[in-house]
Design a protein around this nucleic acid. Structure first.
Lengths: 350, 350
DNA sequence: ACGAGAATGGCAAGCGGTTGCCAAAAATTG
DNA sequence: CAATTTTTGGCAACCGCTTGCCATTCTCGT
């Protein structure tokens, strides 16, 4: 610019030009540093595209003005939003808190904003969010998606996403090694002498629920156990009572329960009814949520690094967003599981 | 525009112009509806500023194109972002889950996006987030803010915010009625014959911690009780062990604990040490978090409608953002508390 | 010392909306 | 039926930043 106004810039403010009335823009920085806005922009985005000396000047100017770029404007022109939406079926469920924690952590590390959405176990809300936010998020993480394969395939075509605990051929996925987990659990029960086992089912639309049942049935049958199944139940502690009653009625001596929430609810009901756990009935939960270690009795459950899963999901998504040269990004991550034996399982009665 | 291109618009797409290659903009809608972009914008924002017939045409066009306005662009030009940031000290803490749930719920109802931030109990991170996000959020909800009064005052000057569980004269606040809660708890203990009571303190920077202690000391002294105080402890179950040991050492027969997390941790430790609760020692927690009802023994605790508090906070913030004519917005909401007596409290020993 | 190529930085055209201002059209009034 | 007021809708200037393209300026090689 021709204006030599470089230093006579702030008759309004007090002191060094801080405390303008209006938040500083890139233009203010440019002016203070005596360069063009484009240069400022580049200095901030690709520091090596600019002379170190200039960059320094710009950085000082930015610091002095206390400049913060507008993510809005940046997004508008660049097309990126620097935000990722995390869709969970139920904010209320402690299980998802772990994954939220994981994603939050990793996203923050990458300087990306997390947009948290509760889809209320509904595929419609899920689709809706996916649609409405397509412009405000660069990518999505779908935890325990309720979408059909077809929907998932379609959606994943138009926007980067990774699914968690929901197999998909169309999008990168991070999964919990459920089959192994169920087998470990059955092995544990078998070793305790249980012959009649019952699967307490969760939401029918849950992929992992289906998966668990499938493996359960296969493996338990293979072991020559008497197999029962009850449910579906809403995965909340409040559904535990009904589940407990139904479980008792099957005559099974051990239950593998869709998740810990439901399992804890069952524990409460069984205790209320005077049915001793594990003396009369063994209970195995799944997820090892907060509380599983201090409920009464402490719950034997299938543990896995959920929080880490969240982090991995983010990594996979970010890899998809900024494809690095060379290495194709991973399409599938399987998180290991292990059985955490506590006090809700014991030898079969008799 | 003079171009009579109104209907020859989509030689690229298939069928009715859906499925363009590029997401439709307001311009596409305008063209399809045969109006100016400004009209489309108004039709969507202030429907009564536009002729019902025109509006209908526009809505149809928008629907056909599957148009979703870009929040980025909208934000850029309007200055509003339609997002609110919720800052919590620790995502890991179930207490905050409840409030997050509440804010999430109410924000969604208002069509506002929630930006969740974990400040890791640090005032620096809090300030930083406040600063960095000032452009990307219309307002802030600070849960259990760690800022000093001065910082809070300064920040609240430049951006709309409401604090939760942190008194402030400079910003609207929603609080838990702690004094009443503590008094109820002490009353309960007194009625059970306890004379030696101990306050188990949480983070020194926590305003509510200070508040609780103050009321505790006053009221317990007034009742002629022997008052002890231990801590500070990190409000996590893992700190419970140390807290339990220290508590035992004071000789107190009952503890009021900063929060449930810590209380549950203490319960575990006491059990491990063979100290019976409540026979040997009574424990009262605070917050009634998930798990307080099924830990062992179930925890007597101070309950309050946390989730509702989150909703109220959002309402107060939104009222601040869209000042309705007339009614000045509320500056303070105090959520009621009550003691939920479960099994961790009982008669004093002897 | 001269010319080629690399490094640096400016120009300006957007990105997709919003909104103040104004003109045309419609409704109301005398 | 003309004059006036109210609606309705278009124009165009931004909002703050990014980026393709091009003009300078540096660096070197010879």
């Amino acid at each position: 610019m021709a204006d030599p106004a470089t230093e006579a810039s702030a008759p309004t403010g007090l002191g060094t030009g801080l405390q303008r009335d209006r938040p500083p823009t890139i233009r203010d920085v440019a002016e203070l540093a005596g360069v063009a806005t484009s240069t400022v922009s580049r200095a901030l985005a690709r520091p090596d595209r600019v002379n170190p000396r200039t960059r320094l000047r710009i950085e000082e100017a930015a610091a002095e003005l206390n400049y913060v770029p507008s993510s809005q404007a940046r997004g508008l022109s660049s097309g990126r939003t620097n935000a990722v939406a995390v869709l969970v079926p139920d904010i209320t469920n402690p299980f998802y808190f772990d994954i939220i924690r994981g994603t939050q952590h990793q996203l923050k590390a990458a300087g990306v904003t997390q947009l948290l959405v509760d889809t209320e176990e509904s595929s419609e809300m899920e689709l809706d969010a996916l649609h409405k936010m397509r412009k405000s998020a660069d990518g999505f993480i779908l935890a325990a998606s309720r979408l059909t394969d077809a929907q998932l395939a379609e959606v994943s075509q138009s926007q980067p996403l990774v699914t968690f605990n929901r197999a998909s051929t169309s999008a990168p996925t991070v999964m919990i090694d459920t089959p192994s987990a169920i087998i470990q659990a059955l092995e544990h029960l078998a070793s305790l002498g249980h012959h009649k086992v019952c699967y307490v089912a969760g939401p029918p639309t849950s992929w992992s629920n289906q998966m668990r049942w499938k493996v359960f049935e296969e493996d338990a049958t293979k072991r020559g156990m008497e197999v029962h199944r009850i449910g579906p139940y809403t995965p909340k502690t409040t559904s535990g009572a009904a589940a407990a009653d139904a479980a008792v009625r099957t005559g099974a001596t051990a239950c593998i329960v869709f998740n810990d929430l439901l399992a804890i609810g069952m524990l409460q009901r069984l205790q209320a009814r005077g049915i001793r756990v594990p003396a009369d009935m063994s209970i195995i939960g799944s997820d090892d949520i907060f509380g599983a270690d201090f409920c009464n009795p402490p719950l034997t459950t299938i543990s896995s690094p959920i929080e880490q899963a969240g982090r991995v999901a983010v990594s996979m998504l970010l890899a998809q967003l900024n494809p690095l040269s060379g290495s194709a990004s991973r399409q599938l991550a399987v998180m290991p599981t292990h059985l955490t034996v506590r006090e809700s399982t014991g030898p079969a009665p008799q």
